[in-house]
């Protein structure tokens, strides 16, 4: 039985309208919540951390012997690290579709809405949590890669630039995933976006040079967003001249974000007619 004194606020006068949290406090709170929930979702967590390790082992030991990179100075493990980074980031970012969709199918979002917490803050929390998850996955990839003989030749500046490109890629893809999560009605449909994200790096220069692919695929594989991200990462990590590819990658991310941010908010508004 509740004690009478404790049901009301300790200091507030009765019926004072509830204060409203600032936008920053909301996003920070929601991000913390999503990070806690992600950390407790053991399946997803194991998958996110096991995937990089397994992929590195598969590419380096199973495929690595058969693939030549066209540059004798570059070992295959060094060639493939950017691809694995992008693959894992894509997978991690795509999880945002499932985490957001799960929230939308539960009653929690109604409580958030009744507290006047808007859809953009909610998506922001999920996307920032995705960045945190991906930071952990990236660290795992790099650790395994270093153990397998990956030797980056990046200056500090280039390494930072590579981090920025990867961050923007994860940001854009997570927000795109949020659009999917807000649109679909089943967890399976939300999960399917992960499949797309996992598959997209293959027709690119991630794992084999584009020139080795059939001619009809060159146009797509050479110009799709993932390729510019991978080319930038590879050049920046290997200390090679990156040319325009980081800018192309960032432009892709900007375009994706410019579309996804309003689309995600619209999709949420439509869902809550």
């Amino acid at each position: 039985m509740p004690h009478s004194h404790a049901l009301g606020p300790t200091r507030a006068a009765p019926h004072r309208p509830a204060p409203t949290a600032g936008p920053l406090a909301r996003v920070v709170t929601l991000t913390g919540r999503c990070v806690r929930l992600s950390a407790r979702n053991l399946d997803a967590l194991l998958m996110s951390l096991a995937l990089p390790v397994l992929l590195m082992l598969v590419f380096v030991y199973l495929f690595g012997g058969a693939i030549t990179t066209g540059d004798p100075a570059t070992s295959y493990v060094t060639y493939v690290v950017p691809g694995v980074l992008v693959l894992c980031s894509g997978y991690g970012a795509a999880l945002t579709a499932s985490t957001l969709n799960g929230d939308l199918r539960s009653g929690v979002v109604d409580r958030f809405r009744s507290m006047d917490v808007g859809g953009t803050a909610l998506v922001g929390g999920h996307v920032l949590a995705s960045l945190a998850r991906n930071a952990a996955a990236t660290a795992a990839v790099l650790l395994v890669a270093l153990l397998l003989g990956f030797r980056p030749r990046a200056s500090l500046g280039a390494a930072l630039a590579a981090a920025v490109v990867l961050l923007c890629y994860v940001l854009a893809l997570s927000w795109l995933a949020a659009v999917v999560g807000a649109l679909v009605s089943t967890p399976e449909a939300a999960g399917a976006f992960g499949f797309v994200a996992l598959f997209l790096p293959y027709p690119s220069s991630a794992f084999v040079p584009v020139e080795t692919m059939p001619g009809w695929l060159h146009g797509f594989a050479g110009h799709q967003p993932v390729t510019s991200v991978i080319e930038s990462l590879r050049a920046l990590l290997l200390g090679a001249p990156a040319g325009a590819s980081p800018w192309i990658a960032l432009a892709w991310c900007a375009v994706l974000l410019a579309l996804s941010v309003p689309l995600a908010s619209l999709a949420l508004a439509r869902r809550h007619r």
């Binding site: 509830a18 409203t20 949290a21 709170t29 929601l30 919540r33 929690v108 409580r111 009744s114």
Partner: peptide, 28 residues
């Protein structure tokens, strides 16, 4: 304030964390 027909709580957060989250979102 609303309490809906079905629980609006995070199953994987503790009771304390749920209340803390809602309190922060309420502006505390």
């Amino acid at each position: 304030s609303v309490t809906g027909q079905y629980a609006a709580l995070d199953e994987q957060q503790t009771g304390r964390e749920n209340l803390w989250t809602f309190g922060r979102l309420r502006g505390l």
